[in-house]
Design a protein around this nucleic acid. Structure first.
Length: 793
RNA sequence: GGGCGCUUAGCUCAGCUGGUUAGAGCAUCUCGUUUACACCGAGAGGGUCGAGGGUUCGAAUCCCCCAGCGCCCACCA
């Protein structure tokens, strides 16, 4: 027997074990067609930097699921990849240049130059990320690695765009969009963040009315006064009436508009509108076919309409405009410190200015998808997939949130004015327009815009398998079994995947059941620091870098700390002591195994006739543990599953059974329980378990299969020495005497049963009190209630 | 304004469909180096399960109501 160190050192094993797994080919799905497919497409991390705790959590959870299923005998595909993350990546690279002194990288480098720089940066990031994903022990199939901006992906994106355009689901139109003046691009509704800001709230005299605003700089072109049609105060004004009034740059002719969008209870119940720079105003203007005029330029300065203020940034102009109105006697009052929300770009953090622009949109209301015998709109299909149970969201409360999001969904603006991303496959020549990837010929120029990142990542689960080609992988592994991600991108990504996948796959001949991106959605919570705050690098005291922790405590400990104690959809706090605690557990396994290895003998078959009471007990418990862990894992209760083996291995096997073995030992049982426990623990902590498995195999060279590809255990009926049925009979005997209480009536009988069952010193025998009570009820001794209702019979 | 989540031991959290005497880790205290492990073992203390009502033989769990904290969505002229 080799000298085994007393302390497990993760560093001495992890890299070589990972290499062994990778080399063995076991990360790839088993090609055996008899095996059922199981697939997870790894949500691709942005190729912009390094792995954080969110990624680590995702990888830990997915790898547990995939290892579990692989051991259960599925042909398990875990497909890795990275995301080009359009806006995020371009802004990171631009910032780098700016920090290096280049004021305007777009201007200095030009389109091709900047793209080249981004490409290099991304390739570098990808390398880093691949290394980090491996560090986590992730058992994904590297031979199938994908990237959202590869040529194959581009082909899929162009194909989808063309199909949707031809079906009228993609259109080009001048509509109001969110413009980020900082990044110089549009951003989607979901990519806005609202920050509370205190600003003065001004009320001005506008003809006979008083109107209020926190943004006087948008008011130059105001020539419509809107009020609710039922507002009695303004009954004498009719829709379409006009009047003359004095305004910022002289007299204007104003028109009265009656519209229900106005809340009569807010302020004076009257407002002027700025359709070019406000979504609600835009809708009012659309309804009544009103003029729209641009006031603010795309760089955030005022246009000619502002006359004396032209060219001024809005923040600078605001007080000056107020001053001018005050001098004209039109300022009624100022309410200081008025709280309102400012829309900020989620990525670039620039303050967003609504603008009317010609952009590309996805129509979410047009009935154009063949779905279960009807023509349905994108919105309707989105609803149906979840409502009909084709897709299940875990935890299910997020289904409500999902439906609510769909209710509020507007047409999706998919064009972006940045350069890093899939180019819009549209060409123009004069008034002509062609939708295709290739240049149609001389005189044609391509649309300069790129597509929203989510337009390409919505295709992730099936474009990665070769779509639009009907590859064997696509036919076998789509739809994927589960999508595991943080609840914070439910709308950004999860919903959009359902959108893109159902359309694309239905369109290319797949059945409804086959046209969903995934069957289950598992949403994990956010990792927070010990105080419950979001972790950020700006707070190094509580911010934890998963790679530092791996270095210090080993991957197995980090994986456990990210999974145990967490429940789907709920945030979890993480702190170093917790990781240290699981490091201790890893070491415990190491040492428990060391003890076993020191006590092995040549005979390793369990002889049922030579079992002590302790042997029988530990084998019975093992059966129960197998059953419980399997059931928890099947139902996405990862934390419960992990805790169950943890408690069993440490509390029962090590603290109790190993101690007994010092006096009365059965090496065969010792080894069997250890090996089975290692199997159960392997998905959670692949490294130690594999290392020990290998060490055990040294003594029996014929059985040298890797733990990773060993079969998942099943309870062994021969080891059920203390069956539940036996226990139940004993309990029934125990309480048989109470039957005489029947005559005394239900309540009294029940109370006495309660007291007796609880007070009996051998309560360990009472494994399932509920069952006892139910059986008593069947004997007519008491009523059973469930959810407040009496259960008949 | 609408919705969701959380509130359980000093701290961080489990507790699946109501059913053994409400659990774990860390922390605290006592004892202990014995065929693995001090990153350990044996044991102890510590909880009216946020407040109040209800249903039930039985409630941390189900229902109602309230409070505090957090999050999401909509609106914000």
């Amino acid at each position: 027997m080799k000298e085994i160190p007393k302390t497990y050192s993760p560093k001495d094993h992890e890299d070589s074990l990972y290499k062994m797994w990778e080399k063995s080919g076991a990360f790839a799905p088993d090609p055996d067609p008899k095996k059922k497919p199981y697939s997870i497409m790894m949500p691709p991390p942005n190729a912009t930097g390094t792995l954080h705790l969110g990624h680590a959590t995702m990888l830990a959870i997915e790898d547990i699921l995939i290892r579990f299923k692989r051991m259960q005998g599925f042909s398990a595909l875990y497909l890795p990849g990275t995301d080009h993350a359009a806006i995020a990546t371009q802004s990171v690279v631009e910032k780098k240049f700016q920090e290096g002194g280049m004021k305007n990288p777009r201007e200095t480098l030009g389109r091709e130059g900047l793209l080249k720089a981004i490409r290099e940066f991304v390739e570098d990031s990808k390398k880093t990320i691949r290394g980090q994903v491996r560090k986590m022990g992730t058992s994904c199939d590297w031979s199938r690695e994908r990237y959202t901006f590869s040529d194959e992906m581009n082909h899929a994106v162009n194909t989808l765009f063309k199909m949707m355009y031809e079906d009228g689901l993609i259109y080009r139109g001048g509509r109001i969009v969110n413009w980020d003046p900082k990044m110089q691009t549009t951003v989607a509704d979901d990519e806005l963040e609202y920050l509370e800001e205190k600003a003065p709230f001004y009320t001005f005299q506008y003809g006979p009315f008083q109107i209020s605003t926190s943004r006087p700089e948008t008011k130059f072109g105001d020539k419509y006064v809107v009020m609710h049609p039922d507002d009695k105060r303004y009954k004498k004004y009719k829709h379409g009436d006009t009047f003359e009034c004095e305004w910022i740059n002289g007299p204007v002719t104003a028109t009265i508009i009656k519209d229900e969008a106005v809340d009569p209870a807010f302020g004076t119940g009257v407002m002027t509108i700025t359709p070019w720079h406000d979504a609600v105003d835009f809708e009012i203007a659309e309804r009544h076919k009103l003029d729209k005029e641009q006031i603010i330029d795309f760089d955030g300065t005022l246009l000619e309409i502002a006359e004396g203020f032209v060219g001024m940034p809005i923040q600078k102009a605001r007080p000056l405009i107020v001053k001018k109105l005050e001098e004209k006697g039109l300022l009624v009052n100022i309410q200081e410190d008025y709280v309102h929300n400012v829309a900020v770009s989620y990525r670039g953090k620039g303050v967003v200015e609504p603008q009317i622009m010609k952009q590309w949109f996805v129509d979410v209301n047009k009935p154009a998808i063949d779905w279960k015998g009807k023509k349905l709109s994108i919105k309707e299909v989105l609803q149906d997939t979840v409502r009909s149970g084709m897709i299940r969201i875990v935890p299910d409360r997020f289904e409500k949130i999902y439906f609510h999001w769909i209710d509020n969904l507007r047409d999706w603006c998919i064009s972006r004015q940045i350069w890093w991303g899939h180019r819009i496959p549209v060409w123009y020549k004069g008034k002509e327009l062609k939708v295709q990837a290739e240049n149609p010929g001389k005189g044609w120029t391509q649309d300069g815009d790129t597509l929203d990142t989510w337009f390409s990542s919505q295709l992730w689960t099936f474009s990665t398998l070769g779509w639009p080609e009907k590859t064997p992988d696509l036919l076998r592994f789509a739809p994927s079994s589960v999508l595991e991600t943080g609840y914070d991108i439910l709308f950004f990504w999860v919903a959009r995947m359902i959108l893109g996948t159902t359309y694309a796959l239905r369109k290319t001949g797949f059945s409804e059941e086959k046209s969903i991106p995934f069957k289950d959605v598992y949403l994990h919570g956010l990792i927070r620091d010990i105080r419950g705050k979001k972790m950020s690098k700006s707070n190094p005291e509580t911010c934890i870098d998963p790679l530092d922790m791996i270095e210090k405590y080993g991957t197995d400990a980090v994986r456990l700390s990210l999974v145990i104690g967490g429940t789907p959809g709920n945030d979890m706090r993480l702190y170093e002591e917790k990781i240290a605690g699981y490091r201790n557990f890893v070491n415990k396994i190491w040492n428990g195994s060391r003890f076993v290895m020191l006590n092995l003998d040549s005979e390793d078959k369990i002889d049922l006739k030579k079992l002590s009471r302790a042997d029988k007990w530990i084998l019975t418990r093992l059966n129960e543990i197998i059953e419980k862990v399997t059931e928890h894992l099947e139902n996405y209760r990862l934390s419960e599953a992990g805790l169950t083996v943890y408690d069993f291995f440490w509390g029962e096997y090590c603290d109790w059974y190993l101690e007994i073995s010092k006096v009365l030992k059965n090496p065969a049982v010792l080894k069997h329980v250890l090996q089975t426990s290692l199997t159960l623990m392997h998905p959670f902590m692949p490294f130690v378990t594999e290392a020990i498995w290998g060490a055990l195999a040294e003594s029996e060279p014929k059985k040298s299969k890797m733990l990773m590809t060993t079969d998942w255990p099943k309870p062994n009926p021969k080891f059920a020495f203390f069956s539940e049925a036996d226990e139940m009979e004993r309990i029934m005997d125990l309480i048989a005497g109470i039957r005489v209480l029947r005559a005394e009536g239900n309540v009294e009988a029940a109370k006495k049963i309660h007291a007796i069952v609880i007070a009996h010193e051998d309560t360990a025998l009472v494994q399932d009190k509920a069952e006892v009570i139910k059986r008593l009820a069947n004997l007519g001794q008491l009523d059973i209630h469930e959810n407040g209702k009496k259960v008949e019979k």
